[in-house]
């Protein structure tokens, strides 16, 4: 909040009514060179990633790593518990019975990988985030229902109160408003 009593500006919010227009608009915002901006849509719009220039997330590699760790934990745990720390013979099976260890090792792989996918997704998306300037906008409530939005942040190096506004107005949205921080 700035000292003169007026709240700092978060940025501008442009509303679109359909998928085609937001993809087209996103392409132009990207080409203009903005970096601190985002689209908000009620569902994942295919083609928007490309239009925004979003690169593939590294999430799959995190999940792969976690899965491998889960597998090793599963095998290691069973070896340590049944073949090393307290070895005892059951139904004539070897202390360390790999075929019998596969199911649990598999479940551990999936468990670790799935949890990492979920937590990883939330973490990289910085969720939960209960407070966000965009929630101030009454109009923005429809971003989770049936409207499409582009938000350009005032922190963007290219941001200029008037030029940006003029540019955003030229995108052909159905409405445009200023959002306070």
């Amino acid at each position: 909040m700035s000292g003169d009593g007026k709240r700092k500006r978060y940025g501008y919010l442009v509303e679109f009514a359909d998928v085609s227009s937001i993809i087209e608009a996103a392409r132009r915002v990207r080409d203009e060179g903005y970096v601190k901006w985002d689209c908000h849509t009620p569902f994942p719009v295919h083609g928007l990633d490309g239009a925004m220039g979003i690169r593939m997330t590294i999430l799959p590699w995190i999940v792969f790593g976690a899965g491998t760790a889960g597998f090793l934990t599963g095998i290691g745990m069973q070896w340590w518990m049944n073949a090393f720390d307290y070895a005892y013979r059951i139904s004539g099976k070897p202390f360390w019975s790999i075929p019998a260890n596969i199911p649990v090792a598999f479940e551990m792989t999936v468990l670790f990988a799935a949890i990492s996918a979920f937590i990883g997704m939330l973490g990289m998306n910085r969720l939960p985030e209960y407070h966000h300037p965009l929630f101030r906008s009454e109009r923005f409530r429809r971003a989770t229902a049936d409207r499409f939005f582009i938000a350009v942040e005032a922190d963007d190096p290219l941001f200029d109160e008037e030029k940006t506004l003029a540019f955003l107005e030229s995108l052909g949205g159905t409405a445009i408003e200023e959002v306070e921080d």
Partner: peptide, 11 residues
């Protein structure tokens, strides 16, 4: 969880 349909998040 404060979901706001950001496309970077959707990705």
């Amino acid at each position: 969880l404060g979901w706001r349909g950001s496309n970077r998040q959707w990705h």
